[in-house]
Nucleic acid binder design. Structure first.
Lengths: 343, 343
DNA sequence: CCGGATATCCAAAGCGTTTTGGAAAACTGA
DNA sequence: TCAGTTTTCCAAAACGCTTTGGATATCCGG
């Protein structure tokens, strides 16, 4: 396709060595020739062939993302688009490329093994960690730099991760509702084999316990986080003899569903029933226009992607350093969906 | 990382040539040795180094996706996750990998040029074509196989694309509403510099014209397709002295917003006001549980991704063939959001 | 048993880079 | 001026694979 180094060198009447060094900023080349080379390269739109370069250097300048497709329904987690967008920023700044592979849970391990055995990537981002996730052990054993988006309860050996404080986040949200006088608070959660969902649940339970309220299993639901699930959960819960006065939701989409169900039941949100949702601050799911629609625990997943990528690049540059970790706090944003518990 | 061909060959007391041929299915190798080689490769988890291979063959076995970030708000189009998931299926079946790059509109051309000059990919998928999109000319000129997801009105030279019949889709939806007696139909569209949005508008206008109804500019809105936009649009439109009795929406999220606004206004959807939305059949945005919530023009964007990928692979295998095109019809699904126009 | 076809293997070149280990030229200071 | 640096360049090897062009061994019919 493009012009090759050898050709460029020939056209300049220089050796490939010199041209390579000139372009890569090595000192042993005259400032004047360097400029000459750079100009010529620019003019010919020369870009070194990635494959050849990585073969020579042993570094691929590529990061792998393996996105799990939820086994049951093959649902793509909608947060991943924004996460990727954030990570992509960091990569393009550092001149890395991103290779993506979406695989059903079952083939995940093979996907990782392949990527690494084929020398396709310098590092990996692990998405959607579950409790006790086996991928972490696999990757540490294989000795590849990686960063987990989230954590995996049960894995004791240290590893690099970036996560939001799901526990504290949902504890605070629950406390907020308790302070408003709510006593029956429902938790409409993601699948609790996912680590984040488990932590949110724990935070919720802790807050209840601290307030001396015993948790009611009937008020806790978990499923794939869709609008339809939110609607179904709220519909069922509101039909209980002793329905909740407040809901805690794990995603904006679920919260949409809650709201619709509440409307269906003729209940007014923020007055009769309160809702707090987690808000990943997705670009295409803004929480309201000016004032936030929902009271929410917010944390930008796009920022998370950017940060995780930066951590990984750092890890790749200095392979022997201990694991990096980053715990981000969410901000509790008060919107129109919460109010004092009805008497 | 992994074991190399030379090492594998040495351990088998064979030449690299023979091992390579054995694994790649060339005929000039004894069936018995082939089996021996294959077993050994399996056992050692040997995978040929992608970079080296592509350097030797000149084929990268990688497809590039350049996802535009909407310049104004850096919004990631939510359909892209599912599209990618579909494409990913096709790629992994064919042993291709997917390299992704998300760039703001302004740097897009450079992103394409770089990918190609660096020999990073064998082909490209073009996302989010605009009217008269310059990328198409660029890529044809560069001579790289590519498939456009969507089309670009104004580009006359032939190129490969896969699209849904946006025009007919919205024409039918409009006709459906007209048959129900609606006369004031609002169009809540995506940004109309996007090709798909323009075609939908055209379809809508044609149906109105065929029915002898003059279009009212006030009833046509366009913006980034978010829930908030849907809400704002419907709120404003319903406050008109002569409000619409039906809405046509370009995405599920927008439709969510419409519904919320209608509820706010105390209007009942499917009874007082009808809504038809386009439904990309996103995995995380199912349109209702059993019965569809919204009457919708549905077309799975995941299928589109799979199909587009297959087309591209075909194009790569036989480079000199004429462009491929694929026009998919949407299905009009009747849900609970439409009904006869109120008298 | 022998010349020619066929089956089976291998050495070496090449893909486009980077990098090692000099060589030649230009510059030092005494 | 001249030995010793320093600057500036280059030839060649290497990365891990595929592929070309044989070489050797085995088989065949007559």
């Amino acid at each position: 396709m493009g012009i090759t180094l050898k050709e460029l060198a020939a056209s300049l009447k220089l050796s490939p060595t010199t041209v390579s060094r000139a372009l890569n900023g090595y000192p042993e080349v005259n400032a004047k020739t360097r400029k000459r080379v750079r100009d010529a390269a620019e003019h010919a739109n020369y870009h070194p062939n990635t494959r050849a370069r990585s073969l020579a250097t042993g570094r691929t300048h590529a990061i792998g993302h393996v996105i799990p497709l939820s086994a049951s329904h093959e649902i793509v987690n909608p947060v991943f688009a924004d996460f990727i967008a954030g990570a992509g920023e960091a990569y393009s700044r550092a001149d890395y490329e991103m290779v993506l592979s979406m695989v059903p849970d079952a083939q995940e391990e093979q996907a990782y093994r392949n990527m690494i055995a084929r020398g396709a990537v310098d590092g990996l981002i692990v998405h959607g960690p579950k409790l006790n996730d086996p991928r972490i052990a696999l990757l540490t054993q294989l000795g590849v730099p990686f960063v987990v988006h989230g954590r995996s309860s049960g894995v004791t050996a240290p590893y690099s991760w970036l996560d939001i404080n799901n526990n504290r986040s949902f504890r605070r949200a629950t406390e907020f509702l308790l302070q408003l006088g709510h006593r029956r608070i429902a938790l409409v959660n993601g699948l609790e084999n996912m680590d984040f969902a488990m932590r949110r649940r724990t935070g919720y339970l802790q807050a209840l316990k601290d307030a001396g309220i015993s948790a009611d299993p009937v008020l806790m639901r978990q499923a794939e986080m869709t609008e339809v699930f939110g609607h179904r959960a709220a519909t069922e819960l509101m039909r209980l003899p002793d329905p909740p006065t407040a809901f805690l939701s794990s995603s904006m989409l679920v919260a949409y569903g809650l709201r619709r169900a509440l409307v269906d039941q003729g209940v007014r949100m923020g007055r009769d029933v309160s809702v707090i949702t987690h808000d990943d601050d997705l670009s295409y799911l803004p929480n309201g226009d000016g004032l936030p629609l929902f009271t929410a625990t917010r944390s930008s997943v796009r920022d998370a992607g950017r940060k995780a990528a930066e951590m990984l690049l750092q890890l790749i540059d200095a392979p022997k350093q201990p694991p990096l970790t980053c715990l981000m706090e969410t901000t509790l944003i008060v919107g129109e969906s919460t109010g004092p518990a009805p008497q």
